[in-house]
Amino acid sequence: MNIKRFVQVLSLFLILTALSYSLYKSGFAQEKTKLLEVGQGAPALTLTNTAGQRISLADYKGQGIVLNFWATYCPPCKKEMPLLADALTEDIAVITVNVGEPTRLVNQFLQNKQLSLPTLLDRKEEVYTLYQVTNLPTTFFINEKGEIDDKVIGELNEQLLKEKIEQIQPK
């Protein structure tokens, strides 16, 4: 075997070895990632709201929580925002999490739509990742015990929102 052929075979072997190791490690890492499921405790989160205050999910302990992930460029998100604003009650907290957008843009959107919703800013998409959100909008319904009662991927309508809120209403 000549030297050129030997180098080619060795290079191919090293590339395949590196690829195999990479696939093994990524598959192994995925096994350790626990998927969010109904009945599981909602992961703790602390983010800054549009006024610059730090807000935690724990601040709403004992209440039912509607946790909605959205963005200003998302048409279904825009459509459901007024429904979410109307859902705020004494026993139900509605918290929206804007994903990856600048504060000024979010504030301008809320002001133009005349919405006064507690809105947290996930500029680095850390909570988006923590909650394993894959599409916008996504809404988590969290009961007064802090457990995920349900999750809706996609746009909420009035009837669906009402049903889900009834499920998380504190007893």
Rank of each mutant, 00 (worst) to 15 (best):
L88Q: 13
E147K: 08
A42N: 02
T46S: 10
V66G: 03
V94H: 00
I55N: 04
E144A: 14
T134M: 05
T138Y: 03
N107C: 04
D149G: 06
F109S: 02
L57M: 09
V38W: 13
L120W: 05
P118Y: 06
E155H: 12
L117H: 00
V38Y: 08
A51C: 10
R123D: 11
L117M: 10
E101L: 07
Q30T: 10
Q40R: 03
L57K: 00
G62L: 09
K78V: 14
A71T: 13
Q111V: 04
Q40K: 05
F69C: 06
G146T: 10
G62F: 13
R54K: 14
N107K: 10
G64P: 01
F141M: 11
V133Q: 01
G100Y: 05
G154M: 10
T48E: 15
V38C: 12
I65R: 03
A85R: 02
P43E: 06
M81L: 06
K34C: 12
G27I: 05
Y60Q: 03
A51M: 08
V152C: 02
K124V: 08
T139N: 03
S56M: 11
E147S: 08
L105I: 05
K113R: 13
R54A: 07
T50D: 12
C77G: 04
E31P: 00
T139E: 01
E155Y: 05
E155V: 00
A87V: 09
T50S: 14
L35A: 11
K78D: 13
L120T: 14
E31S: 14
R104E: 08
T129G: 15
L121E: 09
K79P: 03
P43I: 11
L36I: 11
L57W: 02
G39H: 09
K32E: 13
K151H: 03
E147P: 02
Q63M: 08
F69Q: 02
P118I: 14
P137R: 07
G27P: 01
E125V: 15
E90M: 08
M81G: 01
V99R: 01
I142H: 00
N112C: 06
D150P: 03
E90D: 15
N49V: 14
P76T: 06
P76V: 04
S116Y: 07
N98C: 07
V127W: 03
A71G: 14
T96W: 00
L83C: 07
E101I: 07
S56E: 11
Q108I: 07
T72V: 12
D59P: 02
N98Y: 07
T138K: 00
L36H: 05
D149H: 08
V99I: 15
E31D: 09
T119V: 11
E37W: 05
A93I: 07
P43W: 09
I95V: 13
L121N: 08
G146Q: 05
L120G: 02
L84N: 04
V127E: 10
T96R: 00
V97M: 01
L105W: 04
L110R: 03
L121W: 07
G100S: 13
I55M: 01
Q111T: 09
L115T: 03
I92A: 08
